[in-house]
Simulated scan of single mutants.
Amino acid sequence: MLTRVAVAGVHGHGATHVRNVLRLSDRATLVAVADPRPSADLPAGVEIFASLEQLLEATKVDVVIISTPIQTHVPLAALALRAGADVLLEKPPTASLAEFEDLSAVIAETGRACQVGFQAQASQATLHLAKVMAEGRLGEIRGISAVGKWLRTARYFDRAPWAGRRRLNGIDVVDGVVTNALGHSSAAALLLDGSTGVDDVRSVETDLFRANGIESDDTSTVRITTTRGTPILIAVTLCATEHLEPTVIVHGSQGRAVLSYSSDTLELHEGSCLTRKTLERTDLLANLLDHREDPAVPLYCPFGATGGFTRVVEAIRLAPEPRVIPEALVRWEGEGPDRHPIVRDVEHWIDRAAGELALFSELGAPWT
């Protein structure tokens, strides 16, 4: 029998989820979607509802995929779980540690499964690197750094009322380059360190800046120290000269590794030997379907394994407002919705931060 799937939020990344359900048509069937702005690009026979509550009242579903604004994740996930459905929840799963604890309680109460959409966690490149580290092939792990040099235009921040916001109508959103746009970086680094749980993070230091006219950060360094003692340095921007693939770099006493998680590519530098390989990635929805058929099959990214990441979100939520990068250090390019800022020498400072496991302010970056 095919698994009955519903998608909440069908625009933006939600459209990707719709296509993915249709791709898995031998195992699942898309029975309904919920979105206040219905999409015309849906197969015949798919029911359309203005809200997930209406959908769940009218239609029996087995799995709900939630790809909605950040501040709606927890109430919608709780609604679906209590309706008896398993959930695939987009990242960031929650906007605060309190929300994380609330949804954890609902998952325990209902006994349902909740997978979170950190796709890099299901990459064989990520998992192979974690195994290499655990085997000691890179020696003592001195630190992990995540590098993200992205370019985002005004269109990105204009796409939705919550984009670029820390709070909206009094509700925490905590959007930003660290928590959302390049959130995979922090999550992957924590996974590699074996520090995914809420109690696996000892401290989080934030150094948040913005060049865009938004509330949230777009150019930041964050240093996580795990209970294992590993420093994890996140150095990311949405104001780069060009859009490059993000990487997670592992610094070991006997070697170095570079994970390009978007392409599932891994470079291993072990002594004088360099190997580079591109590996496969398991689809998170397919993994959830496998888990439903056989609970002995583990989820690649169960909700509980995002606790360490949520500690980072919580630190950013409580941090002071991002500081504005002086106009003299910003060059603007493009017009209208294509307009975007470029922070002077931001790539240089990101590389230094990643290499030295240091915050922008510690390095004396000019905007600090």
Rank of each mutant, 00 (worst) to 15 (best):
T225P: 05
R228L: 09
A77T: 09
L285S: 01
I48Y: 09
A125G: 09
Y261G: 00
T227E: 11
D290H: 01
R82G: 04
E270M: 14
E242H: 12
T110W: 04
V250E: 07
R166C: 10
T275D: 13
G229D: 07
R344A: 15
R159I: 15
I48N: 06
R27A: 08
E57D: 15
G9H: 06
R137S: 03
T72F: 15
L89S: 04
S262R: 11
G271L: 04
S263C: 05
R202P: 01
T179E: 07
A146S: 11
T3N: 03
V174G: 03
Q71R: 14
V10D: 02
P92M: 04
G9E: 05
T275P: 11
I65T: 09
L138D: 04
T282C: 05
V204I: 06
A83C: 04
N169E: 14
G117V: 01
A80P: 02
I249C: 03
F49N: 11
L56M: 10
L89Q: 09
I70P: 09
V21D: 05
W349K: 00
L79F: 05
L191Q: 10
C239M: 07
E242N: 10
T59P: 03
T68Y: 12
L244C: 10
A8F: 11
G84R: 02
Q119L: 01
A354M: 12
W349S: 06
R292K: 12
A257M: 10
A328L: 07
G229E: 06
E205Y: 01
K277Y: 06
R228Y: 05
P298T: 10
K131R: 14
V10R: 10
H128C: 12
L259F: 15
G334E: 14
L285I: 06
A146V: 11
A6S: 12
G136D: 05
L127Q: 15
A8R: 07
